[in-house]
Design a protein around this nucleic acid. Structure first.
Lengths: 188, 188
DNA sequence: GTCTATATCGCGATAGAC
DNA sequence: GTCTATCGCGATATAGAC
């Protein structure tokens, strides 16, 4: 145990989430979050670039995606790799936590500032996937389209999964989306 | 002529673009923009919700999309309608203005705050396309995927079109993207 | 950690347009 | 008169500089 209470970052995240639920995003100020976490405003901004970032898990997903694309054997089919990656995201972040994920999503969708950051996070992922696919031999146009498509599938699948009465595993929903989108010649 | 010089909004937009080019986005303050346009800071915020918005054309594209989806004859195939819509966007905003569009894009890509807003604008379009497609009889999952796909194609096609040595018409690039994405059973 | 700039927005007043 | 666009003042929170 050091001089400070541990897990400052986690405490800030939890304090922020609590306050957002209690008062809404806009009404919650950074000093309030810091106070509830027993820290100073300055410390908040050392951990998060801005108030919105406390709501997102940094670069975790893009970094995992980069690792996956770099480390998977070169002979694995890119589309299969992406499907596996999305299933992995589900296992690590979604499956078995529907209510938690749903609550978080609702807060994001209700707040334009958070929707905006969410959209940016998706774009960040596209920008990691694209060069990763290129490095695996996919041509530039195909890599761009496949990167965008995968993130779109992640997005649509998340929403579908949250509303799914059958409570499927997330990876099954992403697979269904990919299938619907790519395996049909008349997808409409 | 009224009491005020006309086109306050346009003057603010032009002043902002000039200053962004001269000094960069961050170094440019709202008071500077307002001053160059001969208006006050307060007036700037009456026309634009925030500093970023001065760089984007409001809801123009989503509104045009909504109109298209609502007014086209019911028997037009949704995918064909989307392809037509994207071609229209090209005709109205891109074709023949490559350099202007390129300059704008470069500023956006260089500035995280603008990239974020750009991502949000794309999401806004998705959120208009989706119910529009539903109203045209596309099933929910198909509408969600097709909406996301169309916006992804718009995005990828814009980049491709900007780099295209053949200087194709924008609509031809979007068609090529759609074809690549949807008409192939093994798109990778 | 402290200090400060500046983005953002609420309120009341004003000046023509209709 | 009523409506709309603008102005001026002031308050507050974010975010970055020192």
């Amino acid at each position: 145990m050091g001089r400070w209470a541990p897990d400052a970052r986690g405490r800030l995240e939890r304090a922020a989430l609590e306050l957002f639920v209690e008062q809404g995003y806009t009404a919650t100020t950074v000093p309030q979050i810091a106070e509830r976490a027993g820290l100073t405003t300055r410390t908040f901004f050392r951990h998060f670039a801005d108030k919105r970032e406390v709501f997102f898990d940094g670069d975790a997903i893009p970094q995992a995606a980069r690792r996956l694309l770099e480390q998977a054997p070169a002979d694995v089919d890119p589309l299969a790799l992406l499907r596996h990656g999305l299933r992995q995201v589900g296992v690590e972040r979604f499956d078995g936590r529907r209510e938690e994920v749903r609550r978080r999503r609702e807060i994001i969708l209700a707040e334009p500032a958070l929707r905006e950051r969410d959209a940016q996070k998706r774009d960040d992922l596209v920008r990691v996937l694209r060069p990763g696919l290129l490095a695996r031999g996919v041509d530039p146009l195909g890599a761009a389209l496949l990167a965008e498509t995968s993130v779109a599938v992640l997005h649509v699948a998340l929403e579908t999964w949250l509303a799914d009465p059958e409570e499927r595993v997330f990876g099954d929903v992403t697979d269904a989306c990919f299938h619907r989108l790519l395996m049909t010649s008349a997808p409409v």
